[in-house]
Amino acid sequence: MTLSPVTSGYTRWDQSDRRLVSSDETEWFAGGTDLIPLARSGVLDLDSVVDIKSSHLERTVQRIDDRWRIGALATLSDLAEHEELTATVPAIAQAVSQSATLQIRHRATVAGNLLQRPRCSYFRDPSISCWMKGGSDCPARDGRNEHHALIDEPCVATQPSDLASVLVALDADVNIDGHDGSERTVPVAELLQRPVADRRSLHTLESGDVITSLEFTDPGTSRSTYLKAMNRAVWQFALVGVAAIVDIDDRHTVVSASLVASGVDSVPRRLTTSSETLTGRELTASSIASAADAAADGLTELSENGYKTALLRGLVQRSLEPMRGG
């Protein structure tokens, strides 16, 4: 038995039999930077929590052959400060160093970053009913939706993680230690799904499942970038963000392109048409313009967030321009 109750309802996890400590109501956390404000405001009524920050889980960031492996407990600062990773995949450092503040990046873990609850102000107001909290309607759809997603869905909150868009662009996987004792690997793009009526959450992780690490293939000679538009240069979530991983050959032809946007959907949104538009073509002003034009395909503007369409197209263009001719 390795349970370590510190105080009533608070338990530290150390490979104990999680069935002893976990129920569907148990909140698992590491940094807790999202959990604490939700508990303080009353949006979450904490009954029991399991702290995994000092558990056996990994915090290391390492490359093994052509695969990068990031322990679930690595902090955002650990990623930002990792020289080899930063040099190899600049988009990761750009995404995390534009997230939150130094103090939060020191505390927040990469796994927790993927599992944030919606940053929607209606969701975070305990006095307001909303679909994500089990209600019937989304007050943002016809309310103040300046910061919301460009989608026509029951919930229009955005996926708040910048890092998530880069990881989806990299086709990264998460390794999960399941609550039933199974281990499984799923793409980040499958972990982060739009909410549905019987799973009102921005992710598909079940209660008691624990992310143990992230993995992705080293992008090699591909160039990467993450651009983020925000109201303030610090602490803000993305109005719109664009992650771009682009492989360009010696003749300036795009071998492959993977563009993913933040701030426009309740998931990291793959800009599939833009990516396909670029592939096989030389990276020119014309091909970049085509990719930018296609970026908002399929998106639906709400009453106050139409400006995001222009931002998205502009960020796609700006992300690609520096990759020309270099």
Binding site: G31, V49, K53, Q103
Partner: peptide, 13 residues
């Protein structure tokens, strides 16, 4: 030794 916002850290942790 790590600079954090104490408003975002659980006391018991």
């Amino acid at each position: 030794g790590v600079l954090v916002c104490s408003c975002l850290v659980m006391g018991a942790s």
